[in-house]
Nucleic acid binder design. Structure first.
Lengths: 210, 210
DNA sequence: TAGATTGTTAATCGATTAACAATC
DNA sequence: TAGATTGTTAATCGATTAACAATC
């Protein structure tokens, strides 16, 4: 038994793997698996068992020697660590094809996220409904995001508009941004950004093709 | 002047940054900027100038002391390194909301990629047209991908179908997969996979939120 | 020439892994 | 108890950065 490691700074790369562990555990739970060893979990994820044990050890002792990890228990613990014991409301900016696909995507709700505001600046789209949400004018972003106390936003606008949208989101109090626009955003140090760009991912792989 | 570094294995993490450099250079070229220093480029990307110079030095000497890099020249060189001097045909599997958004996305063509085949297994969708492409039955994947000599595929099907689709793509000769399904795929060592999962990215960020 | 910036080296920093005592 | 597997340490491996000679 060790004293709690409250003061140790967890490397971001370790945090980034927790959602993958959680995803695998959700799958195992659905399969009805009750216990799993770090070796089995590692094989499913294509990583080393030592890495899983080391990663988890930043947060506590969740396993049992000789047995492994209880799937439900570890799931619960990782959810707590990632602050996924609540549902996070998310603002979506951009109601184009991608925005529509995101609003209709069924994978968010079960995993802790609900898109609850949608914005666009196209007068043709404003006022229209998608999946039960009225598209709001971009001019009301600050007001509505503040009102809903929203901390997370998804940017699905063209690259040319993304920095302006970002500045407005940050001004509205958003602290985490998932950015689909192919551009590096400037944000204050306390705002987190994750990037999703299929083109750069494809270009990464063509290096290895002939 | 150094001898060419043909035999040095370039770390994958270095390769993964080249598309970001290219993206920034494309932007600079459009702005009409002719020359840029590693320090300026670094600032735009939020990384260190030493990292940019080190990364590029794996592939050659592209800059000029006292001046920096010629934007057009470096752009051309990175395109050559990433095998982006041609257009890559891409097969898309899954014609749901995400599949539609990807087919309609205008960002692929200018960057070296063209979705030229679309598959689905839903009889309602097969035969329908999206953006000039007829949706083909999943049963014809192997045949058509072989016929077109396609090496790159995008998976936009539910997680439950993704591994089966992957196995079929690999059997058809695909060597690079961009996977939107939230599941770790099993592939042979010579097949490259990149993952895009907005949920895990959001869950990564909630760790830092309160 | 003087100033600026590259390409490269070596030091530093950080992440992964092998190994094993502890223990279920 | 014997076997299995964790949690942790220390070694290894790899990536980043500081610094500067070379040189445009």
């Amino acid at each position: 038994m060790m004293p709690p490691k409250n003061k140790i700074e967890v490397p971001d790369i370790v945090v980034s793997r927790l959602p993958l562990y959680l995803r695998a555990l959700n799958f195992l739970a659905e399969e009805g698996v009750e216990t799993i060893s770090s070796a089995e979990l590692a094989q499913r994820l294509g990583i080393s068992s030592a890495q899983i044990r080391k990663d988890l050890s930043f947060f506590g002792e969740f396993g049992k020697q000789g047995t492994g990890y209880n799937v439900e228990f570890l799931r619960k613990k990782i959810k707590e660590i990632l602050n996924l014991t609540r549902i996070w409301d998310v603002a979506l900016v951009g109601a184009g094809d991608l925005g529509h696909a995101l609003v209709h995507y069924g994978g968010f709700l079960g995993q802790g996220f609900r898109i609850s505001l949608v914005f666009d600046n196209n007068p043709q789209k404003i006022g229209q409904e998608i999946a039960g949400l009225i598209i709001q004018p971009a001019s009301r972003m600050k007001e509505l995001i503040r009102q809903h106390g929203i901390q997370i936003a998804i940017i699905a606008v063209p690259a040319s508009a993304a920095q302006k949208v970002t500045d407005e989101l940050v001004a509205a109090g958003v602290r985490a941004i998932l950015n689909y626009a192919p551009i590096t955003l400037k944000v204050p140090p306390d705002v987190h950004v994750q990037y999703i760009d299929p083109v750069t991912r494809l270009q990464h792989m063509t290096y290895y093709l002939k």
